[in-house]
Design a protein around this nucleic acid. Structure first.
Lengths: 233, 233
DNA sequence: TTGGTAAGTTGACGGTGTCAACCAGAGGCG
DNA sequence: CGCCTCTGGTTGACACCGTCAACTTACCAA
């Protein structure tokens, strides 16, 4: 028999998803439990298992949806912008999304997500956003400079992503509650980050000797190969 | 009566800490439980509560230790380096630590840590590393340029930290298992990041009109004030 | 000696994920 | 029509978990 709830027919699956979202909003990602969503849906504790193999699978789907929303947002906002500077538009869109949907954003970059390799759909949705940025970069005249090859572009894309991610992570961290910053400081932090991205793309590629100097230092100091997974020493 | 274990006297506290570390190594941060620690120490499930108010408190202490180790490492490596380029030395030290102790590093930047504001000791240890970088930056001639004021330095410090953090997060992410990259690509990713940091510090500060252009766009698009904590819409 | 406190103990409660077994209904099919 | 199988729900059990409460011991200070 079905539960008493309004969840008609066999759409319990959808109901679980949206109830999961509501639960995360209220209790955080750690507070999500299959039993809780079942209870809140007025359904037996095992019912969700008919639609999701495990808690992780449910979570993976919620996260995948968040990523999908993110990609759509990025795409739409960047496209619709009449700005010359398409990269600036994308950066702004990124930041706008993260500040408008901090929970969703946090969810996407939580470190306790289900293993990516076991949830290919989630992974695929996540990669979409990265591709959008890379495409955007490819469209700029930056990409047509003779000193920029594919690998360089890829590395710079990563850097840019990292910069914006770091910025919004800081801006939406709960440190902001205990140590709030002024609206003005916030704005200049954002503008500064975006400007510095411009600096990176505008500046010429590091010179050969400079790269060699750094690479040497890297080879000197950075361990190569397998990593050790222990917390001691 | 005491447990049978070798944990003599009242050093159960220390024993808990190191057993917690061992547990995290084996079962991940999610797998840490006070009961497990107690069991592995041959002690009753409530014994750890005499030394740690809750699971979170135990975890906070482990994390605080990790941060302390990190700060010490940064300091030592940077100091001992005979390089002219002190910033490069610090960047390398950062990366070296993260690659040598990926678990410890992940632990420090896990998103499921105890609330920072409720664990001041942990917070304080965490801030130490940031201060080290800022100090390092202050020592450079960069800091003495007329166009660099305190706020600018602070913002650039944040950017640099973000860049290095993003780099090592990618390098130690488990995506590396499923999509491994060549030793050479790894090395150039590292060198590239460090070089781009140089680009940032070397380049001149963004011009006034450029900043104004960006700031305007920011004001246009970025929501101000309170954020909404919901996952819908 | 006495009394109080710190550091252990056992026990209980409510919560979790998940396996197993059962059951009702719907649809295909001989 | 009758049967049979599959889907989506059910209850029940198990082994965990964090944490509160109450009890016991050992020691140390007055």
């Amino acid at each position: 028999m079905r539960g008493i709830m309004s969840t008609s027919r066999t759409n319990l699956r959808e109901a679980c998803l949206s109830e999961a979202i509501r639960t995360i909003e209220k209790d955080g990602i750690e507070g999500l439990s299959l039993r809780k969503v079942a209870r809140r849906l007025g359904v037996s504790h095992q019912a969700p298992y008919k639609h999701f193999a495990s808690r992780e699978h449910l979570l993976a789907e919620v996260v995948a949806d968040a990523f999908a929303d993110f990609a759509v947002f990025l795409d739409k906002r960047t496209r619709s912008s009449r700005t010359e500077d398409e990269l600036l538009a994308m950066g702004l869109a990124y930041i706008e999304f993260a500040l408008k949907h901090p929970l969703k954003y946090r969810l996407m970059f939580s470190t306790t997500l289900p293993d990516r390799s076991e949830h290919p759909v989630m992974l695929e949705k996540a990669e979409r956003s990265y591709l959008l940025l890379k495409d955007c970069l490819s469209g700029l005249e930056y990409a047509h400079r003779p000193d920029i090859d594919e690998a360089m572009l890829e590395r710079d894309a990563m850097l840019i992503l990292t910069l914006v991610h770091g910025l919004v992570t800081a801006l939406t961290s709960d440190a902001m509650d205990t140590m709030p910053i002024s609206e003005q400081a916030r704005e200049s932090a954002i503008a500064h980050t975006l400007a510095r991205i411009g600096t990176i793309l505008g500046g010429s590629v590091p010179t050969e000797p400079e790269m060699e100097r750094i690479s040497e230092a890297v080879r000197d100091r950075i361990p190569t190969g397998a990593v050790t997974l222990n917390l001691r020493d």
